[in-house]
Design a protein around this nucleic acid. Structure first.
Length: 478
RNA sequence: GCGCCUCUAGCUCAACGGCAGAGCAACGGACUCUUAAUCCGCAGGUUGGGGGUUCGAAUCCCCCGGGGCGCACCA
């Protein structure tokens, strides 16, 4: 706090650093008891953006906003060095100011500014000082403006990042190790989705941006990492929507010696914990409806739901024609090459999933549509897999992992034949993964959670862009 | 990718077939305790772009572009 620059003309007068002593919030916490008209004798330095400026002749008031909150600056002719320059500041300018903490006669805690320095000029406006920016085009394309001018936007995004921090913390406490695995894949595996393709010049090879970290994470388990997780970006070449961004963040975790029932407990406990930390408790309101996230969550099998919906017994071993006609009767059209598992899944996804408010664990998915999940220990043609459904959407997907390399090869081969029949999202053969399994994967359970979707849930937002700092947009027109 | 809606001053919005306007911001001025300060003054536009209908288009029609929502796909 030695010397302040006093010349605001031009960028060369902007200092390289500013020593501030207090955040705005700290001042109101420390000096809350000061009475109207009273001065404290305490000199502080603050920094932030001028968001309101009321010049009244030989005195002026400004609202200075920083990341903690805001504080009023009281500026007076004869007291403030550079009073006239202060009065000419633009809304949005960053300044650093030094002065005594006091409360005005009208009762507003303020800093009686002795001197100040411009830290950045704001040439562009932050919009209407009352209404801010509401044009969604500007909100997404110039997100910094939205984040600055909308406290709601800022809080939502902050909460999303806080959620990731809490998740890491919680998983560390459970003994998980955080790892990183490749994003550039030679084979895009681990999920059913279309990948982005890129090219490596020196290798002369096309590479894929990962659609899931799953296979590499299980290879780490083979390598001796018994409890691992990764929170990372995955990329899927699909359309944009209020619930889809082409790059999004996935939590995947794998635990040796565990099965899918362990993953159910872990899922409900983690999400209830996040809800308690980020909201007031395990009950949140989502889009006007109440969600009770406290464990235990309801558990129901996929087949039970389908039977209930269709009003008749359904079994994967029933004649295919019978199943097809049941499906058509329910209004779900079936492709010629679908097996019973795919038909049942389609009925569930088209007629049931969106109606489940949850939270609920939908358990036991057909092997036909679960190429990486281990066969169910007692139900033929089924796997030990569940999806957690909350607010009508899949929030988590988990299973007892398939560790048998021979069976895995068969599953991949079935995927290849589906790809040959035109399913662009079917998996490819991954020889490296099979080789890894040949060294032995212990009984392992895995879980994947879409972090963006989870953040939407916990921040009560209906557009995924709200929880992404810079969402993917169409190219700006010239 | 398809359908519906939308785009007016820097921002938020009016005008909905008959002279493109207001508030805020900007700019000039007054004001020594304001709270979205107030008051006076002054500016601000190819109404997203292009074409058409009409005596006359921000307004009606067509094409293109951006955005929003829904469908499809998925998480």
């Amino acid at each position: 706090m030695s010397s302040y620059l006093t010349d605001v003309q031009g960028a060369e007068s902007i200092p390289y650093r500013f020593e501030r002593t207090h955040a705005a919030l700290e001042i109101s916490q420390l000096f809350g008891e000061v009475q109207p008209g009273e001065s404290t004798g305490h000199t502080v330095s603050v920094a932030g953006r001028v968001m309101l400026l009321r010049v009244q002749g030989k005195v002026a008031f400004a609202k200075l906003v920083d990341s903690s909150g805001s504080i009023q600056l009281f500026v007076q002719h004869g007291v403030t060095d550079g009073f006239e320059r202060f009065c000419k500041l633009s809304l949005g300018d960053w300044i650093g100011a030094r002065g005594e903490v006091m409360r005005t006669r009208r009762g507003e805690l303020s800093i009686k500014v002795v001197d100040f320095v411009v830290l950045a000029k704001a040439e562009a406006s932050f919009g209407d000082k009352w209404k801010g920016i509401s044009d969604p085009d500007i909100r997404w394309r110039q997100r910094e403006v939205d984040l600055w001018s909308s406290k709601t936007s800022r809080n939502t995004l902050f909460k999303r990042f806080e959620m990731e921090r809490l998740t890491r913390q919680w998983l560390f406490d459970q003994g998980f190790v955080e790892v990183e695995t490749p994003i550039l894949h030679q084979v895009a595996g681990g999920a059913l989705a279309k990948p982005f393709v890129t090219h490596h010049n020196a290798l002369g090879e096309d590479l894929y941006l990962r659609i899931a970290p799953e296979l590499y994470l299980k290879r780490l388990v083979v390598g001796g990492f018994e409890k691992v997780f990764e929170i990372g970006r995955v990329f899927r070449n699909e359309g944009l929507s209020p619930r889809h961004n082409p790059e999004f963040t996935m939590l995947e975790l794998y635990e040796a010696y565990a099965d899918y029932t362990d993953m159910m407990s872990l899922t409900e406990e983690l999400i209830a914990y996040l809800s308690i930390q980020l909201s007031d408790g395990p009950v949140v309101s989502y889009q006007g409806r109440e969600l009770k996230l406290a464990p235990p969550w309801r558990r129901v099998t996929l087949l039970e739901l389908v039977e209930e919906k269709l009003g008749s017994a359904v079994d994967l071993s029933m004649p295919l024609e019978e199943l097809r006609s049941l499906s058509r009767k329910a209004g779900v059209r079936v492709e010629e090459w679908w097996g019973p598992g795919k038909i049942v899944l389609e009925i569930y996804e088209q007629l049931i999933e969106s109606e489940l408010w949850g939270p609920v664990f939908v358990c036991d998915y057909p092997e036909e549509v679960s190429p990486l999940a281990r066969a169910h220990r007692s139900k033929p043609a089924m796997t030990e897999r569940f999806e957690a459904i909350v607010a009508g959407r899949e929030l988590a997907n988990a299973f007892s992992e398939l560790g048998d390399p021979i069976e895995q090869r068969k599953r991949f081969e079935r995927q290849l034949s589906m790809r040959a029949r035109g399913d662009e999202e079917a998996m490819s053969m991954d020889e490296s993964y099979i080789r890894a399994l040949e060294h032995g994967l212990p009984p392992t359970a895995g879980l994947g959670i879409g972090m963006d979707r989870l953040a939407m849930l916990l921040t009560d937002t209906s557009n995924i862009r709200e929880v992404i700092a810079f969402p993917t947009l169409r190219k700006t027109p010239d």
